[in-house]
């Protein structure tokens, strides 16, 4: 089928591009290690108040934060996904492609899929490093795979929104502005770095509207506590809706703005 072939060839192109940028590979390998090693040092002093939290007895900050690192990497990686498309627009590559019989749907789809592939690889690397550093994953390998599904949905939404915004703005500056505006606050307005019981009350309300939080809660359950289905179903549902919203936005922008 033309669509699948088109997606396949373009995914190969996008991944090939990323793997040829050596600095990019280096940074993406080093960054999670820095998060895990340095950040846990910074927050080590929290250990005392940590141990008093219900459900977190005998859990180190490293163990608590590792799922957060996975989700943050996904967030930062996929939020920037639109920059590649912007480059294509700027170079005239997109226009040139649109004058060929290439299936329109494959253009954004292949970009989002390529982002997903990279995210999964990055997530698996982080999980591996975490395990080496002594994190015990409660649900084992099946739990890691479940986590991968959750973060894929989260990343899918961000990547699709990012591509849609790239088409809307057609310039890097506003896209970078939006990403910077959104990325860090969504991390801090969630339980990524702090257990929910240590967060102020209003923040616990706000985080219920934050897709990043559903990713963190789900992955953290799988790593620390096992299959907490009350949390997990909600995470799957919300993240699937988030991904669907992103795809809808991306598709609409493509139809309206691509030329």
């Amino acid at each position: 089928m033309n669509l699948l072939g088109d997606i396949q060839h373009q995914v190969i192109r996008h991944l090939r591009t990323l793997f040829r940028i050596r600095v990019w590979i280096f940074i993406n390998l080093v960054q999670p290690i820095i998060w895990l090693v340095l950040f846990t040092q910074v927050f080590d002093s929290l250990g005392a108040s940590f141990a008093q939290q219900p459900g977190l007895e005998n859990i180190s900050y490293l163990q608590f934060f590792a799922p957060g690192v996975v989700v943050m990497t996904v967030l930062f990686g996929s939020a920037w996904a639109g920059m590649g498309l912007l480059q294509d627009i700027d170079m005239g590559i997109l226009s040139k492609m649109l004058a060929t019989p290439v299936t329109r749907a494959s253009i954004i789809t292949s970009r989002v899929i390529a982002s997903m592939v990279m995210l999964v690889i990055q997530a698996l690397i982080i999980f591996t490093i975490a395990v080496i550093m002594g994190v015990d994953i409660a649900t084992g390998v099946p739990g890691v795979l479940f986590s991968v599904v959750l973060i894929c949905l989260l990343g899918l939404g961000f990547a699709a929104f990012s591509n849609g915004l790239a088409l809307l703005f057609k310039r890097p500056e506003p896209l970078m502005g939006v990403i910077n505006f959104v990325a860090l606050p969504t991390v801090f307005l969630s339980s990524t770095m702090m257990p929910s019981d240590l967060l102020p009350g209003w923040l616990n309300t706000v985080r219920q509207f934050n897709p990043v939080d559903y990713g963190v809660v789900g992955v953290r359950d799988l790593v620390l506590h096992g299959y907490v289905w009350s949390d997990l179903w909600l995470s799957v549902l919300v993240l699937a809706a988030w991904a669907a919203a992103g795809i809808t936005f991306g598709t609409l922008m493509f139809r309206a703005k691509a030329e």
Partner: peptide
């Protein structure tokens, strides 16, 4: 689209 080729003003080639 099947029957045309298009060369835009910008050089639309992938550098990588």
């Amino acid at each position: 689209r099947k029957r045309i080729g298009y060369v835009a003003q910008d050089v639309g080639v992938d550098e990588y």
